[in-house]
Nucleic acid binder design. Structure first.
Lengths: 219, 219
DNA sequence: TGTACATCAGTGAACGCGCGTTCACTGATGTAC
DNA sequence: TGTACATCAGTGAACGCGCGTTCACTGATGTAC
């Protein structure tokens, strides 16, 4: 089952293979993601990524400007992974109920998806949102899930639906994403890095539900 | 104005001076705090602390087991500094109003103190609560402010007053500190490390007020 | 179809960096007699 | 009060570490003729 040489460009399946390695850029990115998943952003180490890709350390410089550049690419991919986690959570939603019920369920799914991702993919979460980070410029495909939306856009959309359903006064809509985000972000960090570290998943879920109740009531 | 030799133990003022340096442990701790204030926890570097104390690198090992031990001491001191920030915020409170008004004002002061500390002492905040951290064992004097309470105890106390004033159903009291903390912690991080980084202090205050409104209403 | 050439992905070796930490020491102090 | 001794805070030199990054290279590929 050895690789045949591509006649001109071929191999067909990967959009754009590179010459020697096949697709070193992708391999490095995936190694970086694995490192991030294992140990968070500071574990994304150039030399280790090249090691895992089976390549000399400096080969990375053909595809990334340096360590920082690789880390940034990994970060975007981690954000996209979070978006997909949220989408999975929303897909599991019942389609029943009126617009109001659906809007509320959607907002909760966004929050629950955030927390679930933080809990189950802690390394990636810390890479995406753990340290210094900025909002992706809207529409960056690297940070979007399958739906084409990034996590922040999902949150904004859920809040828009809440307004449309008459559950959130339009006057309170501006900036509401930051209030909701703060809340859930804070709990996520308390759970993964803070004093709530040891909590059983069910206990975390309980807290999360109360927190989301609080947001709904308070918003 | 040269130092006279102490006759037996003397120098009197510092509780327990060490022999050669005067009080190297304290000097290292303070250098560590300065480093943390400038660059957060990862800036707390043993060699640099000794450099600032004017001492050989390995001298630190007379007073700390190693880098981790120094960092931990710095962390506790940073937590205590936050407690004092909260206390300052509470001291500025009007004593007027009934118990209900006072209880609410107190909770807001705790939250506002937290956010203010995060904004004005970012490096120390990140050292205290930025990475992995655990709750101090209750009553640890190293993490307490002048009042003898640490930040978490201040929050708990404010919530107790809220219950006493009849503003928070006792049934909802258990775990409420984690909900309130999450909320404020999340906003703090969004402001210092996240997408809200560029915001003017007044805008942050505006968001903070809305957030605290939300907590009060939602709790 | 066949040969000469240009491209550029990956190589191999080496750098300087600052870090935390260990070792055997030295010399000012406090204490026993 | 005066001398001998023990203590132990701080010294000086050195370590190994893995990192990111640079250099001049090599050799498989794609392309021009």
């Amino acid at each position: 089952m050895e690789n045949r040489r591509p006649s001109s460009r071929a191999k067909a399946v990967p959009a754009r293979g590179s010459y020697r390695h096949g697709d070193l850029r992708r391999a490095l990115l995936e190694a970086g993601l694995a490192l991030a998943a294992e140990g968070g952003p500071e574990a994304v180490v150039l030399r280790e990524a090249t090691r895992r890709a089976g390549v000399a350390p400096n080969a990375a410089y053909r595809h990334f400007a340096g360590r920082q550049d690789l880390l940034e690419a990994v970060r975007r991919a981690a954000v996209a992974a979070m978006a997909e986690g949220m989408e999975a959570q929303m897909a599991a939603l019942a389609q029943a109920g009126d617009a109001a019920q659906q809007a509320r369920a959607r907002l909760r799914a966004v929050g629950a998806g955030y927390l679930r991702f933080a809990r189950t993919q802690t390394g990636l979460f810390r890479t995406a949102f753990g340290g210094s980070f900025t909002l992706a410029s809207s529409g960056d495909p690297d940070t979007a899930g399958r739906s084409g939306m990034d996590p922040f856009q999902h949150l904004g959309h859920a809040l828009d639906l809440l307004v449309a359903a008459g559950l959130l006064p339009a006057a309170r809509r501006p900036g509401a994403e930051f209030l909701a985000w703060s809340t859930v972000h804070g709990l996520a960090l308390l759970v993964i890095d803070g004093p709530l570290r040891g909590l059983a998943p069910e206990q975390v879920d309980g807290l999360a539900q109360r927190l989301l109740d609080m947001v709904e009531r308070g918003l």
